[in-house]
Computed example of a mutant assay.
Amino acid sequence: MSTTFITSEVSGQILTITLNRPQALNSLNAAACFELAAIFDDYQDNDELRVAIITGTGDRAFCAGHDLVDDFFEPMPESGWAGLSLRKGLHKPLIAAVNGLALGGGWEIAMMCDVVVADQRATFGLPEPKVGFAALGGGARILPHRVPYHIAMGLLLTGKSISAEKAAQLGLVNDVTEPGAVMAGAYRWAREMLTCSPKALYFSKQLAQASMEPDSLRGPLQSLEQELAGELAQSKDVREGIAAFMQKRPPVWTGH
Rank of each mutant, 00 (worst) to 15 (best):
W107D: 02
V69C: 04
S216K: 07
G241F: 02
H66L: 05
A30L: 10
T7H: 09
R50T: 06
V10F: 03
W81C: 02
I39A: 04
A37P: 10
L172E: 04
M1P: 15
I142A: 03
R87M: 03
L157D: 14
Y149M: 11
T3F: 08
A229E: 14
A118W: 03
D70I: 13
M111V: 04
P251N: 01
Y149W: 10
S197K: 14
L228W: 13
A82K: 00
L201A: 14
L19A: 05
F203M: 11
S161K: 10
P148N: 03
L15M: 08
S85K: 06
G255Y: 11
L84K: 11
L172I: 07
S197R: 01
D41K: 00
S8K: 11
E240T: 01
Q13M: 12
E78H: 03
I53C: 03
H145K: 10
D67A: 08
P214Y: 05
R121E: 08
G104I: 05
L25C: 10
G106S: 12
R141C: 08
N99Y: 02
N46T: 00
I109W: 10
P220K: 02
V182C: 15
I17A: 09
S235V: 01
E178G: 13
I53R: 00
Q169A: 15
F133I: 05
A31E: 15
P214H: 00
L101V: 06
